[in-house]
């Protein structure tokens, strides 16, 4: 799969993907210290979105998104 070049776009489409099918959507992050890359991926087994960054500041945005997502996953709204 290709990588989405900008974070805002990834965030928006990831949110839509998740809200369409919360039960079957999983979110993965990978960090390689030696390579200096941080990869996030979200998929619902039909569509897959990926975003890759080498910039420290992006980690904060990703962190914010993750905590929102966790909060939604562990809540009863759909």
């Amino acid at each position: 799969m290709t990588f989405i070049p900008n974070w805002e776009e990834f965030e928006k489409s990831a949110e839509m993907l998740y809200l369409r099918d919360p039960m079957n959507t999983r979110y993965t992050i990978k960090y390689s210290h030696t390579k200096g890359v941080f990869v996030v991926k979200i998929t619902d087994n039909k569509k897959c979105l990926q975003y890759k960054t080498e910039v420290q500041q992006d980690v904060r945005k990703i962190d914010k998104f993750i905590s929102n997502l966790i909060r939604h996953m562990a809540s009863n709204d759909n």
Partner: peptide, 15 residues
């Protein structure tokens, strides 16, 4: 988890 990210992920470039 946020704290872990902040402290452990420190190998990236600063823009």
């Amino acid at each position: 988890y946020s704290n872990l990210l902040k402290t452990s992920v420190n190998g990236l470039k600063r823009l």
